[in-house]
Each structure stands twice: as C-alpha cells, then as structure tokens.
C-alpha cells in the first residue's frame, strides 16, 4: 500500500521540489553579482530606514542581506515556509480525498485492509515526501551557499530543519479537514487559505503590539526562525507544540475517517 502511495504522489512531489529548487537557483545565480557590485551595501543600509517592526517581520533586524545566507535568514526561509506549506496543504487535503474523487475507494474498501491502515500508509507517504523535500532543498542550498562564501553551518542546518515543524502540522490539519468533505475542490481552497492566512498573520504579528496575538493563530509560528538566528538552537517549546498538534490532528483524522461515509 505504501509503495502504491509513493508512486501515485511522486509526480507532484517532483514538480513542487523542482519549482522550489528553481526559485533558489535563481537567487544563487543572481546573488554573487549583486554582492560584487556596490548595490548590496546600499540596499542593506536602505533597508534599515524601514520601520523596525517591518524589519522584524522579515528578521532583518537580526541579519543583513549582504550575502546569500543573510538573505536566506531574512526572506529566504520565510519563503520556504510558504512554498513547502502550500505543498503540504495540497498533499494533506487531497491524499485521502483522491480515492473518493477517483472512485477507487470502493476497490480499496473491498480489500482486506482497515481504514486505519489506509490512513497510516498515506500519512507515512506524506511525511516521507515532506521530509525528503526539505532534505533536498537543504542539500541544494548548502551547495549554493558553499560557493557564495562563509556561513554558520550549524545555524544553517538548524534553520533548514525548522520548516518541518510547521509543515507537518499543516499536513495533518489539512488531512483532518479533508475527512469532513467529499469534494476535492472545496477542500483545496480551504487548505491553501489556511496556509496563506497563516503566512500573512505570521508576517503581520510582529508589526505592532495590537496584532501580536496573531502569532498564536499562525501555524508558521511553530517554525520560530528568529529563535534559531538569535540562539543557534531550535526552540524546544515549538518542537513539543508541533508534535502535540500533529498527533492531535492525526488522531482526530483517524477517528473521523473511520466514521465517514465514503462515496
């Protein structure tokens, strides 16, 4: 069952990974020429003229953009969170629902396997591809950064891991959402909505005290990039929260799927 799942989801995994790596390839190709010109110092200084709250939203108060690693620490990893988050939301929301829309659920139900087994094999497949995507991107960015100069390796690897915490929660949450409906289209919009709203709330939450509460609603808070940049370590609270939330959503999804009337 797991092999089948891996095969079925391989194409979309490849497309998303290629897209993601492609975007960073553009950055690595462009950055050396930027750094070599005088532009970057000027831009860096210019960025400081923006309000401090806006800089904080993109971690620019903690890092400069005069190197590729500096850019990664500011906008780069936030972008990774968003794109990987989108992939996880689409994967989570469609991996179970696909069987109903493709009408293969009747065939699956006729086999001597429990619904729990169906869900678990799909979850394993999803987790595998999420971790693999992040791993491949980490390797790629590491190679890219190695050509662009010195950087803090430990900090880099820790930063590279942080997307996992938000991504798996998004995956399980969208998986749970998908157990409430039979229609692919409906759930896709909702899942992407969760990601985009989370992203925007995450960005806005550092802009003023009035909206600071938004970070508690955003899933991307679990990634806590700032903590890694400041302390070169992952915030253990976020790891625990991520595990708890993932487990909770997973169990709820299992319960719900077992009760669901499958068309």
């Amino acid at each position: 069952m797991l092999k089948r799942e891996l095969k079925v989801n391989l194409k979309s995994f490849i497309i998303w990974t290629v897209l993601l790596i492609g975007m960073f390839l553009v950055v690595f190709l462009v950055y050396p020429s930027i750094v070599n010109s005088n532009n970057i110092e000027m831009m860096d200084e210019m960025m400081k003229m923006f309000p401090s709250e806006m800089l904080k939203a993109f971690n620019m108060d903690l890092s400069t953009i005069d190197s590729a690693f500096g850019w990664l620490k500011t906008e780069g990893f936030i972008f990774v969170l968003l794109v990987v988050g989108c992939y996880c939301s689409i994967l989570g929301s469609t991996i179970l629902l696909k069987e109903e829309s493709d009408h293969t659920i009747e065939y699956l139900n006729s086999l001597p396997i429990t619904r729990n087994k169906i869900v678990i094999s799909k979850v394993l497949c999803g987790l595998f591809y999420i971790v693999l995507m992040i791993f491949l991107l980490t390797i790629f960015n590491y190679i890219g950064l190695s050509f662009s100069g010195k950087f803090d390796h430990k900090q880099y690897f820790l930063l590279s891991i942080t997307p996992i915490f938000s991504s798996i929660v998004i995956f399980f949450f969208c998986l749970l959402l998908s157990t409430f409906t039979h229609k692919n289209k409906r759930i896709l919009g909702m899942s992407l909505g969760v990601v985009f709203i989370s992203y925007i709330l995450y960005t806005l939450s550092s802009l003023s005290k009035e909206v600071e509460f938004l970070k508690y609603i955003s899933i991307f808070t679990l990634a806590d990039i700032r903590h890694v940049i400041l302390n070169t370590s992952i915030n253990p609270v976020m790891i625990v929260m991520s595990v708890i939330l993932s487990t909770l959503f997973f169990i709820l999804a299992l319960v719900r799927y077992n009760k669901k009337e499958l068309l």
Partner: peptide, 14 residues
Amino acid sequence: MMGITMKYIIDKNI
C-alpha cells in the same frame, strides 16, 4: 510583495 529586498535586487540587476 512578500518581502522587501527582492524587488530592488531584481530591478537593479535583472
């Protein structure tokens, strides 16, 4: 739109 620096980087270089 998703950050501040990209526009300037692209406008200045490509």
